[in-house]
């Protein structure tokens, strides 16, 4: 019998076809294999960051990275700064106070100014949904969304996915509960889209006042009872509850929230015995999460999330600048 060669069902993608995007603005723009490609790239950086005492790589040498943060941030800004510096880029941080950027024409003008300074990549955080895409439209270089309003925070979703993949080996059949203030959370919106795209089952667990309508359309099943939402899950992803939501507008009080939705050891016991605990930080200890859970080295992946954040951001900065750097196949 003659030997039959069956051609591979998956087309082998190379170069720019692996990630044909100028910017990284939203998980919604990405195909599942593009998400996986970024995770694979980040995995290499995660290994390099752990393995070497000297972590410097000069592939972005001579390139300018501007971190334009129109909203306060400590850890995300730091993470992007470290990522850029490890790749050898000249990193400049711009903190724009909310007051100076009230008029949007100023926002566009700021974008034009950054553009005129010939940045090679701009990382933007802004308090308004859609603001980063608005700027991306006006500049010539790659733009990375570091969080826009309630809308998207794609690198957070990627670092969360990488953390889960490293701990759990994959996403197929995995049940992930995203718990807390889903309504106002760009982290939740980004994670629901990415985890559903990667094949996990996603649950959105929130009090009804903090659950967005038609959350099913983003690939999540809504639960308003924490105990039911956590039943049998592999990953518990807690969200930060903003202080301004605690004063009776959306929930009566922090202590009632902790009673009904806080992640305590008792509640964590409802999840699978090896369930992973995640939190994007900064945590409100004693509100959405108990310290004993947050600090449990067996269960908590919170510090690993921070570690993966640098790796993911290095990967994104590298991939988005490959065209400009003339990497073969990427122009």
């Amino acid at each position: 019998m003659p030997e039959i060669t069956i051609p591979s069902a998956t087309l082998e993608l190379t170069g720019r076809a692996l990630f044909p995007h100028r910017h990284l603005l939203s998980i919604a723009d990405l195909k599942p294999w593009e998400i996986r490609f970024l995770l694979d790239e980040a995995e290499q950086w995660a290994k390099a960051n752990r393995g070497n005492a000297r972590k410097h790589d000069d592939r972005l040498a001579g390139m300018t990275q501007i971190n334009a943060f129109f909203e306060n941030s400590t850890r995300t800004l730091l993470s992007f700064e470290i990522a850029g510096k490890r790749l050898g880029a000249d990193v400049v941080n711009m903190h724009a106070g909310q007051s100076s950027v009230k008029k949007g024409e100023t926002l566009i003008d700021t974008a034009m100014t950054l553009n005129a300074m010939a940045a090679d990549v701009i990382v933007i955080r802004h308090a308004s949904s859609g603001a980063v895409a608005l700027i991306a439209d006006k500049v010539d270089c790659a733009v990375l969304n570091a969080g826009d309003g309630w809308h998207q925070h794609p690198t957070q979703a990627l670092l969360d996915a990488l953390t889960i993949r490293r701990r759990k080996g994959g996403f197929e059949g995995l049940i992930v509960a995203i718990c807390g203030d889903i309504l106002h959370s760009r982290v939740a919106r980004s994670n629901m889209l990415s985890l559903a795209a990667l094949g996990a089952q996603v649950r959105a667990v929130a009090p009804p006042t903090l659950m967005p309508p038609e959350v099913e359309m983003l690939g999540a099943t809504p639960y308003t009872r924490m105990d039911k939402g956590l039943d049998g899950v592999d990953v518990v992803m807690m969200l930060r509850l903003q202080n301004e939501r605690m004063d009776g507008a959306f929930i009566p009080s922090p202590r009632e929230y902790h009673m009904l939705y806080g992640l305590t050891p008792e509640r964590l016991a409802i999840a699978k015995p090896d369930a992973l605990v995640m939190h994007p930080g900064p945590m409100n200890r004693g509100v959405e999460i108990s310290s004993s859970v947050a600090d449990d080295p067996e269960r908590s992946a919170i510090t690993e999330q921070v570690e993966m954040g640098v790796a993911v951001r290095m990967a994104c900065l590298d991939v988005l600048t490959r065209g400009a750097r003339g990497v073969e196949g990427w122009s």
């Binding site: 919604a28 949904s129 859609g130 826009d148 309003g149 309630w150 809308h151 998207q152 760009r186 919106r189 967005p212 309508p213 038609e214 959350v215 359309m217 983003l218």
Partner: peptide
């Protein structure tokens, strides 16, 4: 208006 589009875009919405 509250609905899928507002949820996707992360916009403040009302029923």
């Amino acid at each position: 208006t509250s609905g899928e589009t507002a949820t996707r875009l992360g916009l403040p919405h009302a029923p």
